[in-house]
Amino acid sequence: MHSPDHKQSTLSLHLADETATASFGGRLAAALDPGTVVWLDGDLGAGKTTLVRGLLRALGHTGPVRSPTYTLVEIYVISRIYWYHFDFYRFNFPEEFLDAGLGEYFRDDAVCLVEWPQKAAGLVPAADLVIRLRIDGEARALDVVAASEEGRKCLKTLSGSAWRDAGD
């Protein structure tokens, strides 16, 4: 899924509030295929887990969606696809990724959503999409960067949809 092509494309959006962030997560859900790796980048409180919650709700998940800060990974199985939500915030060393055996989760039948991937630098698989969330007052600024051919396909789907932040 990950091509060595370094050409990148970016989509930038303004998300007025938490509802808009969750709504974008729902839009993202429709663009992701099994085997896709998404890195979620942003400071604490930027909305990474809110985005994942919106994504999972759009897929029909009705149970709780927790931040995996303490568990390292939360697992959701929806329509025979594994959705893994990782959080490496508490890692002190990248090797903790290997020690925890997390590499086995990155498979062709799964979508992996990774918070704090830089904490496992060099060991976590490369991203197809990098989503950067920044706090902008009460709102969020969001950039989606395609980092592979699969990522460009996702970005094309996202760019082609009619979704627009109602807060703009």
Rank of each mutant, 00 (worst) to 15 (best):
F86K: 03
Y76E: 11
L32I: 01
W39I: 02
L11I: 00
A126Y: 02
G35D: 09
G101F: 06
R53I: 04
V77I: 05
G167L: 12
G26V: 11
R140K: 05
A146M: 08
A20V: 05
G103S: 14
H14W: 12
C112G: 04
V130E: 11
E138A: 14
G42M: 04
I78Y: 04
T49N: 01
Y89A: 02
A121G: 03
L129N: 10
E104W: 01
F93Y: 08
Q118I: 00
K7H: 10
E18W: 02
D87R: 00
E96C: 11
R164D: 10
T49C: 05
R80A: 15
T69L: 03
V144E: 01
D143E: 15
V130I: 12
S3K: 08
V52A: 06
F91P: 06
D33Q: 14
P34S: 07
K119H: 07
E18R: 07
D143G: 01
R132S: 14
H14A: 08
L158R: 04
V77P: 00
E74F: 01
L28W: 01
F24Q: 10
A120Q: 04
G60N: 09
S159K: 15
E95H: 05
R27Y: 08
G101A: 09
V37R: 05
G103E: 15
Q118L: 09
S67R: 06
D108W: 12
Q8L: 06
G122Q: 08
T36C: 06
H6V: 12
L55K: 06
L98G: 00
A22T: 05
L98Q: 08
I135H: 11
G26A: 11
H2A: 07
V38L: 12
A58H: 11
P117G: 03
E95P: 00
T19F: 02
V145Q: 10
A16S: 13
W39L: 06
F97W: 13
G25Y: 04
T50L: 08
F86V: 04
R53G: 10
V130N: 08
D168P: 06
L28Q: 04
V144A: 03
L28N: 07
L32V: 04
I78K: 02
D43L: 12
G45I: 07
T49W: 02
P117F: 08
R90T: 10
D5A: 13
R90G: 11
E150W: 10
G45K: 10
V52Q: 09
D168C: 06
L133M: 04
A139C: 07
T49S: 11
S9Y: 02
F86S: 11
D168W: 14
A100Q: 12
R53E: 11
R57V: 04
E150T: 15
A146T: 01
H85D: 10
R134H: 14
F86T: 10
D165W: 12
Y84G: 06
A20D: 07
D165E: 05
L98I: 04
A22S: 13
V114W: 05
M1H: 14
A16F: 00
L113A: 03
H61M: 10
V124I: 14
V124N: 09
G63T: 13
L155S: 05
D165P: 02
F97V: 08
T36N: 12
K156R: 11
K7R: 15
D5F: 03
P125F: 10
